[in-house]
């Protein structure tokens, strides 16, 4: 199902359909995560991948138009790059430990400690939340900062301040200037 959706994504020229299919792809992968018992990840994927990013893609489409231009360049070099990268990645997976093996390093480092002790150390039943917010609190703080940075980036690119109705502009430039840069 995922592969079929991905191939359809490649073939379609109508970007509106592509955005919708990308949402469907996210929803399918959320289902895959549920099948792998990773409900927290599935929840995030469904909310962010299928929800918000589809809306943002559609918002972008309303700015840039619904149809993809036909590419004039030959696709041999990109295809080669993709094939080489793909085969390197597949080669890399050959060294990976077998899926689901209890002897895998992932099951022996800190995971047993988290699973057994987090109930006493943190006092909440959901181990995922304990790991995210407490054991790996630094990481989550970094992620929060990354999201904040994303907002600052969009703010700089889209010039949110200049669009505010009738007020003075931040850097004194007229509105047209911002359009010329962005569009």
């Amino acid at each position: 199902m995922l592969a079929v959706t991905a191939l359809a994504l490649l073939k379609l020229r109508n970007l509106f359909a592509v955005a919708m299919l990308a949402g469907i792809y996210s929803l399918l992968s959320a289902g895959l995560f549920v099948a792998l018992d990773a409900v927290d990840v599935a929840f995030t994927e469904a909310a962010v991948g299928a929800g918000i990013s589809t809306i943002l893609l559609l918002g972008t489409l309303s700015l840039v138009g619904h149809d993809q231009k036909k590419s004039t360049r030959s696709s041999v070099v990109p295809l080669l790059v993709v094939l080489v990268t793909g085969s390197i990645l597949v080669y890399g997976t050959l060294d990976m430990p077998p899926y689901g093996d209890p002897g895998n390093p992932a099951h022996h480092h800190v995971a047993p400690h988290y699973l057994e002790e987090s109930e006493h150390e943190i006092g909440i039943p959901n181990v995922v939340t304990s790991v995210l917010a407490s054991y790996r609190g630094y990481d989550t703080m970094g992620e929060t900062t990354v999201i904040f940075t994303a907002m600052v980036g969009v703010l700089l690119l889209m010039g949110g301040v200049r669009r505010r109705e009738g007020s003075a502009t931040l850097d004194g430039k007229p509105d047209r200037e911002g359009d010329a840069h962005g569009g």
Binding site: I52, I55, L56, G59, T60, L63, E121, I122, G123, I124, T129, S130, A133, S134, G137, T140, M141, E143, T144, I147, F148, A150, M151, V154, L155, M158, G160, R163, G182
Partner: peptide
Amino acid sequence: QELGILLVELGVLTTVFGVMVAIFYMFAAR
């Protein structure tokens, strides 16, 4: 730990909420 996680999650909620709405507004304003 419980209090800390509650507060920290509140921080994450506030940032994610604000950023998502802000990005949407900025696209729409454009």
